[in-house]
Each structure stands twice: as C-alpha cells, then as structure tokens.
C-alpha cells in the first residue's frame, strides 16, 4: 500500500488532529509516503482514507484486546501495515 502513495499530502493536511507527516523515506516510485507522528491523537475518523486519491491510507477504530484499554485507539494505516508485512 505504501507503494501506491504519490505523496500528494492530502492526508497530512486534512487530518483534523495532525497525526501524519510526510516522511523522508522513499517508496519504490520515489515518493515520500506519510508516516504516523502522533499515534495517540488519531481518532480513527478515516478522513485520511477518504481524501487519499491513491487508496494508500485509511484510518480505522481498532477493536482492542484488553478491556482496560480505551476504545479509541491509534489509526491503522495501510502504510504501517505495509511496512510491517
């Protein structure tokens, strides 16, 4: 998914809580995809997902494993998924 990013910056600009920033890393097409700089601020609102013209990112509220954890957790971006897989 990180490979789909064309670094337009829409997600970074319009994230209401400024969770994202364009990274200095390159994807294989030579673009700088965004990365999560403030995961704790992410509401999972998925605005980044709606804005992304390349279907490269999205936000989601994750179901949490521990009862104790707050229901609202960090966004999972495809970018992160891609990085880990």
């Amino acid at each position: 998914m990180v490979e789909r990013c064309k670094a337009c910056g829409f997600c970074v600009e319009f994230c209401p809580t400024k969770v994202l920033a364009l990274s200095s890393a390159f994807n294989s097409k030579g673009y700088h995809p965004p990365h999560v700089v403030a995961p704790e601020k992410c509401s999972g609102c998925d605005l980044c997902g709606m804005y992304c013209p390349d279907f490269a990112i999205y936000g989601q509220r994750l179901p949490v494993a521990k009862e104790a954890a707050p229901a609202r957790t960090a966004a999972a971006t495809n970018l992160e998924v891609a990085r880990e897989s």
Partner: peptide, 17 residues
C-alpha cells in the same frame, strides 16, 4: 493498482467517496 492518475489528481478521491 496503482492507477494511472497523477499525484494530487482528485479523481481517486472522488472514487474513494
């Protein structure tokens, strides 16, 4: 994918919506 649209092109955003 990836599609043919340029970086910053809005067409993909409309498809997303």
């Amino acid at each position: 994918m990836p599609h043919i649209w340029c970086p910053g092109c809005g067409i993909g955003t409309t498809v997303n919506c």
